[in-house]
Design a protein around this nucleic acid. Structure first.
Length: 425
DNA sequence: TCTGGGGTCCTAGGACCC
DNA sequence: TCTGGGGTCCTAGGACCC
């Protein structure tokens, strides 16, 4: 007789205001103050120039490496229009500032808030550090981004004690000692509930949710708290007078399937009843790889042909580099563009071989570009590769050898000049 | 004062093949 | 002449997440 299986204990760990907290380690004098992280790197130079022009009495030579009060952005509406907040410290959140909020809106809410530039390399470093602490203690960890993970506590020694609280405390302490950062942890019978639980006691919280807690602790919550219910689904549910998870749980499964599709409808029903059997996945292969950029001002395919062409080529080169660095080849190449009215379109084309070659990406992506309407001004351009396979041993061969195939020549002949290409016009 | 960049998954129609 | 069902692949768009 084998022993009965242990009850599943799944943890969701969320770093508290991750980017902002990492910045506070570097600038301890900002502790307790409203601080936001945002803007994007390629606009820093433009930013300094514009600040200098708008506020000539201030010495901006240290910007944007140091903090800038948001108030200064009020004279820079055109610049700041394109910046968004990535993270806000808890004092800044008191003013209603949240991530993805436009810089100008945040400035209005809290002009004294300080703006820091983003430093992804640094956040990635801290991300690796805290994840290393976790896997030392509990090896079954699923990466959910730079500041979030799921952890399977079930088989970890001590993972069942106090419903997982003991182990959660140990991990919190370990991360604090190694990085100086705090996090919140929820432990529950599955990922769905753990994710909600980790939000219950932020920051520095631990929440334990058991099977029996469903009706008391989950059902009163708004539907939107379920990971997978976004603004659209929320609005559609609200229209049917369904606002809480408990109300969703009362909706007949058939009705949900009829109104939301078989797959999503059935999932909504299961989720509202706290049912989720997804495993904690420790490894996964990427499906697509892409680069995109929003321009400082909207560009026109004809008037700004050169600028656009240079950006396009650079995006292709970046995607090619990413593929090579990460060891993948792809055979479906695509573009994404966003018009000045914020509408996006995509075009894809599959080719007869796998590649990570910048020139090939540029050719095929250029063909895709020819299939979209280029009359409107553009605000964003992106290049994407999918149908990825690991390049493995192929890495040792030159790219030309990998790409050499009959179809390659076909494609080259089919695809002459493109937008921004010297050979076109 | 409009709305970043990088992903995943799902749907739905059409082509094409058997 | 009219008319089958699979099954798979490709493409475009959209919802959602961090």
């Amino acid at each position: 007789m084998s022993p009965p299986p242990l009850p599943r204990r799944i943890a969701h760990l969320d770093m508290d205001a991750f980017y902002a907290s990492v910045e506070l380690l570097r600038y301890p004098q900002l502790a307790g103050l409203p601080v936001v992280i945002g803007g994007s790197r390629h606009r820093e130079e433009a930013l300094v120039e514009r600040l200098q022009a708008a506020y000539p009495d201030v010495d901006w030579s240290a910007a944007p490496k140091s903090e800038i009060p948001l108030a200064f952005f009020q004279k820079l509406e055109h610049y700041a229009g394109r910046g968004v907040i990535t993270t806000a410290t808890y004092p800044a959140r008191q003013f209603g500032i949240g991530s993805a909020m436009g810089l100008m809106k945040a400035a209005k809410l809290c002009p004294q808030a300080l703006l820091l530039p983003v430093d992804f390399d640094r956040y990635r470093q801290f991300s690796r550090q805290f994840k290393a602490v976790i896997t030392e203690i509990a090896p079954v960890m699923e990466d959910r981004g730079v500041d979030e993970v799921y952890i399977d506590f079930t088989e970890v020694p001590g993972g069942q004690r106090e419903g997982g609280r003991t182990l959660a405390r140990l991990i919190q302490r370990g991360i604090l000692e190694a990085t100086g950062l705090t996090c919140s942890i929820g432990v529950a019978p599955n990922k769905l509930l753990a994710k909600m639980a980790s939000e219950f006691n932020k920051p520095q919280g631990i929440s334990i949710v058991l099977e029996d807690d469903l009706s008391t602790r989950i059902w009163p919550l708004p539907c939107r708290k379920i990971n997978g219910i976004g603004p659209k689904a929320e609005a559609k549910l609200a229209a049917a007078n369904i606002h809480t998870i408990g109300e969703l749980a009362q909706a007949p499964r058939d009705w949900l399937m009829a109104h939301f599709g078989n797959s999503y409808g059935a999932w909504l029903h299961d989720a509202s009843h706290g049912r989720d059997d997804r495993p904690v996945v420790t490894h996964s292969e990427p499906v697509t790889l892409s680069r995109e950029t929003t321009f400082e001002r909207d560009l026109h395919a004809v008037q700004d042909r050169e600028t656009l062409g240079a950006i396009f080529t650079r995006l292709c080169e970046q995607v090619a580099q990413d593929l090579q660095r990460k060891g993948y080849l792809g055979r479906t190449i695509g573009i994404k563009l966003r018009y000045d009215n914020f509408k996006s379109v995509t075009r894809d084309q599959s080719i007869g071989f796998y590649t990570a070659d910048a020139a090939t990406l540029r050719r095929v992506a250029g063909q895709c570009l020819k299939r979209v309407d280029l009359h409107r001004r553009l605000r964003l351009l992106g290049v994407r590769v999918s149908s990825l396979v690991p390049s493995d041993g192929l890495n040792s061969k030159p790219w030309s050898a990998i790409n050499a195939s009959p179809t390659d020549h076909q494609v080259q002949e089919e695809l002459p000049g493109l937008l921004g290409d010297e050979s076109s016009d």
